[in-house]
Write a protein that binds this DNA or RNA. Structure first.
Lengths: 329, 329
DNA sequence: CTGAAAGCGCTTACAG
DNA sequence: CTGAAAGCGCTTACAG
């Protein structure tokens, strides 16, 4: 293991000087700097990160806690965060909360023990809390954790876009499958959708609306989808808007099982635009969450020097694909 | 920040003793030990991991490099690894190689700088290499990295099981879509399938076989699937075995587009058993990779003290679902 | 602009 | 069985 001492010796300078060129401190003059850099190269010097961390109480790591990395949307988010962190020469420590508050608290705590540059949390629920203060900046991503500033897609706006789209197509009997109402995302998406539909129904034709609730996953989509579609034909909606792509894909599966054709007999929409959304049959109309931008913004907030970290809501765009069409008469 | 000194002072012992109860060194007698533990609790003491790392040249972290965390199989693997690591109070540092050797090398290098307990690599390709030695144990998972011991499913055995299944159902015109042949997984799965089919065809009815090659992803499955299925009916195979679930799901999509019913007109099989496999329409017959066991074994190898790290091939089971049936006449 | 030196918080031989 | 002390490799005031 070569150390600053070895480098200093070879370059004929003090360890302080070596450290200063390492930290890109501009006070070291050109000729000396080059000599040191050459010595580092010759010796294939790599700084000991633990020693640096001990001195600076800071390690070039970003902690990331997600409910479940197996969820395609969180995987997408994790990938973007890793990419953004790498641009700043930071590594990412990943932990799953398994949608459990207690596990979440422990995971965050474990990450904080490493003294990371910051922690990004996609919260398991609304009520999770750390229970103590920390100097490490914490940012909520997609789903708010405790009091920490949230970077997220404007769920309400996105859902309203879906409402507009379905209404414009002519749908007047619509079912909405919301996410869990004990989460902010679940509520925002639902409120955004419902209030827009109500406005439209008030100003124009009346709209018949059914609302259901479930976890954001495939299984609930399939189950609730079947429930909705098995009601007799007269009551059956012509469109189902789901609060996530996974829910929507579950609905597609239920429709297929019941021999209900999408989109001729039923329109289906999702939210997120996971990569699967354009692979299912038919391809899913949905709201694209700007994952790159979410990740980028979250990282920016962490590296924000002036301590003015703030909430940010980013707009998502609607992506219209084959799963929606005008209702058949 | 409370330190060992604070704890020592409060407990009326030396810092050495505090450190010894911390490291579960059994030499500290019961009464003293309890006094120290009480002091730690009272002061809410948390050890400084950086300081510990500096002394021991070791941090409680497992590095994990995957080609792309967005790939559902790797996400599954990552989740299991995180769970296993947590059992040993280790955190996981995640990096994506984006299927690029150069990035992979850099990512592994960056992880090694943190002096982790071990690094697990799911290689991007066969030819990637680190180019230098390290004392940190490195384990290849699923796809071999350089010379490092590989923990993987017995791909050849799994593929042979698929071959048996299709042959037993009565398929005699079969297409195989292999993964990239510059990867060991790609080759093992292909060889396992082809050699079993050839044996069966030799001992029993002859089998007509077409072989294609692509990346392991959805897009290639769809593209190659379309190519296969658009050949005139006479030549069209009655079954397509794909080297991964993602490929198989792409094939399902192509079949759907071409109005070819699965399984009545075409049987389709995958490999991996990603969670999506039981959600597509129809549900996919595939080989279940024992992800928990893979993760567990990889971790065991890393923590193997006696330095006798060894290769291991774990059997995968066939999961028969709706995407396969006897060929129609 | 550069060097000498202190010290971050821990672990671990070394005594006793 | 426990304490006193050295030292891991770095960064950063403090001098000069």
């Amino acid at each position: 293991m070569t150390t600053v001492r070895d480098v200093a010796k070879r370059a004929g300078v003090s360890v302080g000087t070596v450290s200063r060129v390492l930290s890109k401190n501009e006070t070291v003059k050109q000729p000396l700097k080059e000599r040191v850099q050459k010595a580092m190269q010759d010796l294939d010097y790599k700084p000991n990160l633990a020693a640096r961390a001990l001195r600076t109480s800071q390690v070039a790591v970003i902690g990331l806690v997600v409910p479940d990395i197996t969820n395609p949307f969180f995987a997408q988010l994790a990938k973007c965060i890793e990419t953004e962190a790498a641009k700043r020469n930071h590594s990412v420590m990943l932990a799953n909360s398994h949608d459990d508050e207690e596990t979440e608290r422990k995971q965050i705590s474990a990450l904080l023990d490493h003294a990371p540059r910051g922690v990004i949390v996609v919260a398991a629920s609304d009520t999770g809390a750390l229970g103590y203060e920390t100097i490490v900046p914490i940012i909520s991503l997609d789903r708010r954790f405790e009091k920490y500033p949230l970077i997220a897609t404007d769920h309400s706006d996105g859902s309203a876009k879906i409402a507009d789209h379905l209404y414009d197509l002519g749908h007047r009997k619509i079912a909405y499958i919301s996410g869990p109402q004990n989460t902010e995302v679940g509520r925002s998406r639902r409120n955004g959708f419902l209030s827009r539909i109500k406005t439209l129904g008030h100003d124009g034709d009346p709209v018949t609306l059914q609302v259901f609730e479930g976890q954001f996953d495939y299984e609930h989509g399939e189950e609730i989808g079947r429930e909705i579609l098995q009601s007799n034909n007269f009551e059956r909606p012509t469109a189902i808007a789901a609060a996530s792509d996974q829910l929507a894909i579950g609905v597609l599966r239920a429709a297929r099982d019941l021999k209900i054709d999408v989109p001729t007999e039923l329109s289906v929409t999702g939210f997120d635009d996971i990569s699967l959304a354009r692979l299912v049959v038919p391809r899913l109309t949905t709201i694209r969450q700007p994952t790159d931008l979410l990740a980028q913004t979250a990282l920016e907030q962490i590296f924000e020097e002036r301590g003015t970290r703030e909430e940010q809501a980013l707009k998502g765009d609607i992506v219209i694909r084959g799963s929606t069409s005008p209702p058949s008469l």
